[in-house]
Simulated assay, not measured.
Amino acid sequence: MLGAFASLLEDWLRVERHLPKRQRRTARRLFEGLQTEGYQGAYDGVQRFVRAWKAGKFGVALTQAFVPMSFLPGEACQFDWSHEHVELNGVMQVIKVAHFRLAFSRQMFVVAYPRETQEMVFDAHNRAFAFFGGVPQRMIYDNLKAVVETIFTGKERLFNRRFMVLANHYLFEPVACTPASGWEKGQIENQVGNVREWLFTPLARFASFDALNDWLATRCGELALRKHPVTPERNIADCFAQEQSFLRPVTAVFDGYVEHMLRVSSTCLAMLDRNRYSVPAGYAGRVVSLRSTASLALQL
């Protein structure tokens, strides 16, 4: 039944193998595409063709090879964001969750925010380092705007100036992954899916962000009782206890504000993030500096 559609399917596969993995169609999506072209056969035939083509039967061999990554205690921590659905004070909301994972022990930490902004990135790091009891040597990120301003060739990056103040304060080295190369921080990529299943399914219901984040911190400790994937004779909590002595102690908490230059209106109001703040009448018509923090956003 595939017959004349085989050449069309092979053309699609040949084009899409040059795309990032997340942009390639699965065999199911390719099957649906062929149906729109008039294909009336079964899905199994398309699935077998795609599997054989990717295995090299049709002259196209897989060219990528991977070496498992290993980390020393205190060497690295991976970071990522996810969006989740929760009910806060009776209202359904889509929130952002900051994920951290120590690469050696697999100890995780997650904290929720209303949005993904730079001041919330700063606050998340403060909370994570307090939870871990120290700071790793390296922090691994994708190329989020709060961290990376410009992507150059290879691993060269221009990091955000304010973010580098955070990195210099805690003395860790920021590392940005290659675009569309999720395997460079595969642990945190897997954690995002697991946390959605473990903590946000079924729907989480809390009165406030504070209550939600207190519960998330507690669950991070409880989930550490699972077996470590590399050394199953030990649990994650045991490996985390070993790793803590290799983390750099936190001597002072970073002041995670973001500064904005705003002009005060004639009605003595300064507008930031669709909120209007009153200022003394003497500042009307003048430019003022306003510092925003994650704690202010969580209270609004």
Score class of each variant (00 low, 15 high):
residue 155 K to C: 03
residue 85 H to M: 08
residue 134 G to L: 01
residue 140 I to E: 04
residue 139 M to Y: 12
residue 172 F to S: 07
residue 87 E to D: 12
residue 166 L to D: 00
residue 156 E to W: 07
residue 122 F to S: 05
residue 200 F to I: 06
residue 90 G to T: 11
residue 149 E to Q: 13
residue 141 Y to G: 00
residue 206 F to W: 07
residue 127 R to Q: 14
residue 209 F to K: 14
residue 103 A to E: 10
residue 192 V to P: 04
residue 163 F to S: 00
residue 95 I to Q: 00
residue 198 W to C: 11
residue 187 Q to T: 07
residue 93 Q to P: 10
residue 208 S to T: 10
residue 195 V to P: 00
residue 137 Q to V: 00
residue 203 L to F: 07
residue 121 V to W: 00
residue 165 V to N: 13
residue 178 T to A: 14
residue 182 G to T: 12
residue 134 G to E: 06
residue 164 M to E: 14
residue 135 V to E: 03
residue 150 T to W: 09
residue 172 F to R: 01
residue 202 P to S: 11
residue 103 A to P: 01
residue 157 R to K: 15
residue 87 E to A: 06
residue 100 F to H: 08
residue 105 S to L: 02
residue 140 I to T: 05
residue 155 K to M: 05
residue 110 V to N: 09
residue 190 N to V: 14
residue 175 V to M: 09
residue 162 R to C: 14
residue 166 L to E: 01
residue 196 R to K: 15
residue 178 T to G: 12
residue 193 G to R: 07
residue 149 E to V: 13
residue 125 H to C: 12
residue 134 G to C: 05
residue 138 R to Y: 07
residue 144 L to T: 14
residue 150 T to S: 11
residue 122 F to H: 02
residue 123 D to W: 02
residue 118 Q to D: 02
residue 149 E to H: 11
residue 185 K to A: 11
residue 157 R to H: 09
residue 175 V to T: 08
residue 109 F to W: 10
residue 138 R to V: 12
residue 166 L to R: 01
residue 210 D to H: 12
residue 119 E to H: 07
residue 125 H to F: 14
residue 90 G to I: 10
residue 174 P to M: 01
residue 182 G to A: 15
residue 135 V to N: 06
residue 105 S to Q: 05
residue 104 F to K: 07
residue 194 N to A: 11
residue 204 A to M: 13
residue 181 S to I: 04
residue 197 E to T: 14
residue 97 V to E: 00
residue 109 F to S: 02
residue 145 K to D: 12
residue 156 E to M: 11
residue 84 E to M: 10
residue 152 F to D: 03
residue 186 G to M: 12
residue 112 A to V: 05
residue 88 L to A: 06
residue 169 H to K: 10
residue 203 L to C: 11
residue 158 L to N: 08
residue 98 A to R: 00
residue 93 Q to N: 09
residue 193 G to Y: 05
residue 132 F to C: 03
residue 108 M to C: 13
residue 172 F to E: 10
residue 107 Q to Y: 07
residue 133 G to S: 06
residue 114 P to A: 05
residue 104 F to C: 08
residue 91 V to L: 08
residue 171 L to Y: 01
residue 161 R to Q: 12
residue 147 V to N: 01
residue 111 V to F: 04
residue 177 C to G: 13
residue 147 V to F: 04
residue 109 F to M: 10
residue 89 N to H: 07
residue 142 D to N: 10
residue 144 L to I: 15
residue 192 V to C: 13
residue 106 R to L: 04
residue 163 F to C: 02
residue 91 V to S: 13
residue 126 N to R: 06
residue 144 L to Y: 04
residue 181 S to W: 11
residue 90 G to M: 09
residue 102 L to Q: 00
